[in-house]
Design a protein around this nucleic acid. Structure first.
Length: 824
RNA sequence: GCGGGCGUGGUGGAACUGGCAGACACGCCGGCCUUAGGAGCCGGUGCCGCAAGGCUUGGGGGUUCGAGUCCCUCCGCCCGCACCA
């Protein structure tokens, strides 16, 4: 017999060529007039688009292997699948590379895209290439600019001077979300605070909807929790404290208006604009100025340390507590943050740990207003943050449970005009402007006469000009492109200057999934009717690192675009799956560690199927997993074996399988149907690729083990089934094996159906326990009743032996599983 | 500190609603075939024990005929947030 050797280097390009030539994975948009009911159900399967830099890494191979398995399974389950690809192509790495080498970011980005495309093809990912784009294509960012204009026209994009986070290394401002522990998310440099005028998106308008709609989407709970925490909604009250000396009202936000009578001092953030004015003329001016200067120069890390002892300075002024008319001293202290609430707080040391620490340090009075004891507190059991009845407040509130009192006090404040119920959020507006070159230009001009004027939609795109000096100088490098900056005002025709900031790249990636639906539309960003067909994304797949940034911004965009009438999908991603990282030797792969596994090398050596199937077999895809070359070889052996068995069987003459199969043939058919059932369940409800592949391995082992005893017909059926089930994970080998056996194309075949009759057996092995320990097993008919099962178990020899000499107290019968005899 | 997740053989991991713990794979051991093998095939492999049998899912306790799974408690690891009033 001819030697059959599994040769992925021959098999894989051959099938890739077929898919490319026939454009197998392209899917048309529903034609106008075709009713959606007539069409097959749609499925939009999407993996987060890659940032093209260098070449793809192992994480890319994982995310696209997962997504492709889902896409294939959906297609063969009778759905029209949209599975597109694009590139998040604007961004800092390409620009930093340009600064170093002088190579235009467009050139390095195009080179990286070419390499990504080439490798994606060698991986055999089933992508609809007709919809491909890069976010740096003018035909794409034209519409990014259009969306900006739409948001600007509706007041959702605005310019504002504010204290912002500035990265001194990248020389640009950052969004709050891009600052991790006071450091730049990109480069790790410590960020500084700067007062600058910047462009913002009004995401805070959507805080409640972003929060509430989390309940309606099928996302991992931890991602939803992270978003909830990030939005940080707190309910409470705004209460006004008046500084009589200066005649100024200071509102504060509190979640605990029930403790208002316990407010014994008042604290302002060092950044509060009134601090200097308040201290003026009190004799505390010098101390206050010194304290504020120190606080402002301190890093957010130093300042944020929770265990740090409280510091602050008396402002020399007082405010009046609106509930009891008491004057209380005002302090400036760095534990109060300007960016949350109103930048000032009422301090209730008896019922707040931070205020208690401050009061203790400064010897301020502490007044208990709620009964209760903190076992870890001071001699009085304070600070106590739990519930209890009010004391030392006002006669009408004393004795009232604090939660009830909270409502009553807010109602009283409201009546008196001294406060009202209020909600506060941690979420800030999205700062989108960047003082960098390689990004989407913000399409506005600044006109001396008209102010800020958006570039009219029909003049878009505002093209990013070519420049020679990319180095950041604290303002956008675009500012140096004088020919470009200098323009005329679309409003009055007078001289005007272009906005030189570019957009955060997260703007580009907040709507790319909409553009895929109608990627070649030159008249509009999309046709709303087409979006109604495809949106929302049915299954989105990507890394957890985007749990807040990208996933929140994209949700905001969809809601805003819905409000503007361009979209119906309030939520972009109906289901989300976050895949875990692949490590090597227990550590994140990195060039500096020298533990990088290159997908290109693995694919060249073992083939894409081995690499893909191994990554899915290694463990549950949402967990981190450690790469092992030995494990990879194991999967390679399995693919070789299945392919070889298929090739050998294909050479053997086989007739039609006789209708009721018997004996060993029946055993093999049962195993095949068991595998169909197992793989289908593992793919349908969950992402259990590892156990699905294990089931195909079991089937393959069974085919191999029974090779000498089964008919060629039964073997063919089992092998066809194995290849068919393997296809979503190792498409080339499975397509080839299936084609050898049948002459047909496996991707054109419906997903196999398990025959219920072959899943059932007429007998099964009944486990016989005595006192919960397995003592014997007996074969029983599948339809045996409880009495028969009990009798069978009690008659089992090893049960008899263990029951002998004891009293049978009870017999538990679980049909289909076991009998447990309880003896004493 | 708050929120979330996790802890199973030598290793990665299985075990869907409480019902045979360790599927599948790696590694290891033995054998066959081969001029040769980093190819292929067959068998073995949780721990203790010659065996009968006993023990075993981070530790301790509980519920149950029965617990990896449920409850309490302690320990360890990972992730997110962190002076958010």
């Amino acid at each position: 017999m001819a030697e059959h050797r599994y040769d992925p280097q021959e098999i894989e390009p051959r099938w890739q060529q077929v898919w490319a030539d026939e454009r197998t994975w392209e899917v048309a948009n529903p034609l106008p007039g075709v009713s959606p009911e007539r069409a097959e159900p749609k499925s939009y399967v999407l993996e987060m688009l890659p940032y093209p830099s260098g070449e793809p890494h192992i994480g890319h191979l994982k995310v696209y292997s997962v997504g492709d398995a889902v896409a294939h399974f959906h297609r063969r389950s009778g759905r029209r699948v949209l599975h597109p690809m694009g590139y998040d192509a604007f961004g800092l790495p390409a620009e930093n590379h340009a600064i170093k080498t002088g190579q235009h970011p467009r050139d390095s980005t195009e080179a990286a895209i070419a390499e990504f495309q080439r490798q994606f093809r060698t991986w055999g990912i089933s992508i609809d290439w007709s919809r491909e784009f890069a976010t740096c294509d003018p035909s794409y960012y034209r519409w990014t600019q259009w969306i900006f204009n739409e948001l600007y026209r509706h007041g959702l994009a605005y310019r504002k001077e504010a204290v912002v986070k500035w990265c001194p290394n990248d020389q640009t401002v950052l969004a709050n979300e891009q600052v991790i522990d006071g450091h730049c998310e990109r480069c790790g440099f410590e960020v500084e605070a700067r007062q600058l005028e910047q462009w913002m998106f009004r995401i805070t308008d959507y805080a409640d909807r972003l929060l509430d709609d989390l309940d309606a989407i099928d996302w991992p709970e931890h991602v939803k929790t992270m978003q909830r925490n990030w939005i940080g909604r707190s309910e409470g009250a705004e209460v006004t404290f008046r500084c009589e000396e200066l005649g100024i009202d200071y509102p504060v936000f509190t979640t605990r208006p029930d403790t208002l009578f316990g407010a014994t001092f008042f604290v302002m953030a060092p950044e509060h604009p009134d601090v200097e004015r308040l201290a003026a003329g009190t004799g505390n001016e010098e101390a206050v100025r010194e304290y504020v200067n120190h606080a402002l120069t301190e890093s957010s890390e130093q300042r944020g340390a929770t265990d740090k002892t409280k510091t602050g300075v008396f402002l020399g002024r007082h405010v009046v507590n609106p509930v009891n008319g008491e004057p209380i001293p005002m302090y400036v202290a760095d534990y109060v943050l300007m960016e949350y609430g109103t930048g000032a707080i009422m301090a209730v040391p008896a019922h707040d740990e931070r205020d208690h620490a401050f009061a203790t340090t400064f010897g301020l009075s502490i007044r208990r207003v709620i009964e209760g004891v903190n076992p870890d507190g001071d001699a009085d059991g304070l600070p106590y943050t739990g519930d209890g009845p009010l004391v030392n407040s006002a006669p009408e509130f004393d004795g009232m449970p604090n939660r009830e009192a909270l409502q009553a006090i807010v109602a009283w404040l409201d009546r008196e005009g001294k406060g009202h119920a209020s909600v506060s959020y941690r979420l800030r507006d999205w700062l989108l402007s960047r003082q960098r070159y390689w990004g989407c230009p913000i399409p506005v001009v600044h006109c001396g006469a008209c102010g800020i004027v958006p570039v009219p939609d029909d003049e878009l795109p505002v093209l990013l000009p070519d420049i020679s000096d990319y180095a950041p100088k604290g303002r956008s490098p675009l500012a140096a492109a004088e020919d470009w900056v200098s323009t005329t005002c679309p409003g009055c025709g007078g001289p005007a200057r272009r906005e030189t900031d570019t957009m955060d790249t997260f703007v580009d990636s907040s709507w790319y999934f909409l553009r895929y639906c109608d990627a070649r539309n030159e008249q509009a960003a999309w046709d709303p009717a087409v979006l109604r067909e495809w949106m929302p994304v049915d299954q989105y797949i990507g890394g957890v690192e985007h749990a807040i940034l990208h996933l929140m911004y994209a949700r905001f965009f969809c809601k805003a675009l819905c409000d503007l009438g361009h979209l119906d999908a309030q939520e972009p991603f109906a289901r989300l799956f976050t895949q875990g990282m692949i490590t090597k030797d227990g550590a994140k792969m990195s060039k500096s560690r020298g533990n990088v596994v290159s997908p290109r090398e693995i694919v060249e050596r073992y083939g894409a199927d081995t690499a893909r199937a191994y990554i899915l077999f290694i463990g549950p895809p949402d967990q981190d997993a450690d790469w092992s070359d030995e494990g990879l070889e194991g999967v390679h052996r399995f693919l070789s074996r299945l392919w070889r068995l298929s090739a050998e069987a294909a050479e053997r003459r086989a007739g039609v399988l006789p209708a009721p199969a018997e004996g060993v043939d029946l055993d093999l058919l049962r195993k095949a149907h068991w595998a169909i059932e197992k793989v289908t369940n593992d793919l349908a409800g969950r992402f259990a690729f590892n156990t699905a592949i294990a089931a195909v391995m079991e089937l393959t082992n069974e085919i191999s083990r029974l090779r000498e005893q089964t008919s060629p017909e039964a073997q063919r059926f089992a092998l066809e089934t194995a290849n068919s089930l393997l296809f979503p994970f190792a498409p080339h080998a499975a397509a080839d094996g299936y084609h050898l056996l049948t002459g047909r194309r496996v991707w054109e075949e419906a997903w196999p159906q398990a025959d219920p009759a072959l899943l059932e057996r007429d007998t099964y092995e009944l486990v016989c326990q005595v006192n919960g320990r397995v003592r014997d097993r007996v074969q029983v008919p599948a339809d045996a009743d409880r009495a028969a099962l009990e009798a069978a178990a009690l008659a089992a020899p090893n049960v008899v032996a263990h029951v002998d000499g004891h009293d049978v107290v009870k017999v538990v019968v679980v049909p289909g599983r076991l009998v447990n005899v309880v003896v004493r």
